[in-house]
């Protein structure tokens, strides 16, 4: 986590505080874990932790791509619809070409739509909110056109056994999430594309003046984001064995919540995969813990809303100077 560490002159205590100010999500996560461990004996068990990781991984994979796009200073509302399309193609095409080509085409559909989103944003100069809001509506239309508004069933149920690989309590899905998060954290911190993504989101004028190709980075990040949405959709289709045309509805909103909760700045230039992992896990722990306590699911929704506003207020109070 050295990347996020803040090198300020001052005592170790100050630097710890400074780090916490910029990474308050871990405080949130620790608090939620403490509260639920205390409240439920089933919470801090190996099995349940495995559950939390698997449940969180789906939003988590979406959140990785969203983080890339957000650090770049943009937003992608279309991930839920892309997820549904990839899931439908991966299942629907199996009859014609077999499992892996179908999965591959599902992935490619995500990459293509991401490339389209990014190109539209870069070429038109429209706000990505508008472009991907259009995408959210239209891509869902594509899903329905393809599936004829029916849930598609997988022809051979061995497909659903593909993700049934465990490393201790950790499912393949969770492993994929962590592997992708680590990989893209490396991309963000160690590659030219990653660092320039920050530069563009942070100060687009300075980046442009320094000769950075702003458009190319945006196109790449939208492509990454949608491709990961397709990965998520395919994993979901494997888990469920079906592809619902309405799969992933309003998941884009949950994804944005997870990323913002983690501390990545909506305006761009600031954030990391570590933060996003924190946000995703906090969200997953909250959902899981509240369910373990048998609280009705409205509590979960209300707590989420409240926590999000709280995180925003906290951010404003604590990091006031950094956010002007």
């Amino acid at each position: 986590m050295s990347h996020a560490t803040d090198i300020r002159a001052g005592s170790p205590l100050q630097s710890v505080l400074g780090w916490l100010l910029r990474n308050h999500i871990w405080v949130f996560l620790a608090l939620t874990i403490i509260v639920f461990s205390w409240a439920s004996p089933y919470f801090l068990t190996v099995n349940n932790i495995g559950n939390i990781l698997t449940q969180g991984a789906f939003i988590g994979i979406l959140a990785i791509g969203m983080t890339m796009v957000m650090i770049n200073g943009e937003i992608d509302l279309s991930v839920g619809a892309v997820l549904a399309l990839a899931s439908a193609l991966a299942i629907g095409l199996q009859d014609h070409m077999g499992v892996w080509p179908a999965v591959f085409l599902g992935l490619m559909s995500g990459a293509a739509l991401g490339f389209l989103n990014g190109t539209l944003v870069a070429l038109s100069g429209m706000h990505s909110f508008i472009v991907t809001l259009g995408g959210l509506i239209g891509i869902r239309g594509l899903v329905f056109v393809y599936s004829g508004e029916n849930a598609l069933m997988v022809p051979d149920f061995s497909y659903t056994e593909i993700p049934e690989v465990y490393l201790g309590p950790i499912s393949l899905t969770a492993m994929i999430f962590f592997a992708l998060a680590l990989f893209f954290q490396w991309v963000l911190s160690s590659t030219r594309h990653g660092r320039e993504t920050y530069a563009v989101g942070d100060n687009i004028e300075a980046a442009h003046d320094a000769g950075i190709n702003v458009k190319r980075h945006k196109i790449i990040n939208f492509t990454i984001c949608s491709t990961l949405a397709a990965v998520c959709g395919i994993l979901l289709s494997m888990r469920l064995g079906t592809a619902e045309p309405n799969a992933g509805r309003i998941w884009e909103l949950w994804t944005i919540i997870a990323v913002v909760l983690g501390g990545t700045r909506l305006q761009g230039g600031f954030g990391s995969m570590w933060m996003t992992i924190g946000g995703v896990l906090t969200l997953a722990v909250l959902r899981n813990g509240l369910r373990l306590l048998n609280t009705p699911n409205y509590v979960e929704l209300m707590v989420m809303g409240a926590v999000l506003v709280l995180a925003l207020v906290l951010d404003k109070v604590l990091n006031h100077k950094g956010y002007t």
Binding site: T191, R192, R195, E196, Y198, A199, D202, N203, E205, A206, A207, D209, A210, G211, I212, G269, F270, G322
Partner: peptide, 19 residues
């Protein structure tokens, strides 16, 4: 014309990083 979130080294060579 600096990016506040990037490091000093990255800002000095902004747009011309060795890769």
């Amino acid at each position: 014309s600096l990016s506040p979130e990037l490091s000093v080294a990255e800002n000095i060579y902004l747009g011309a990083w060795p890769t």
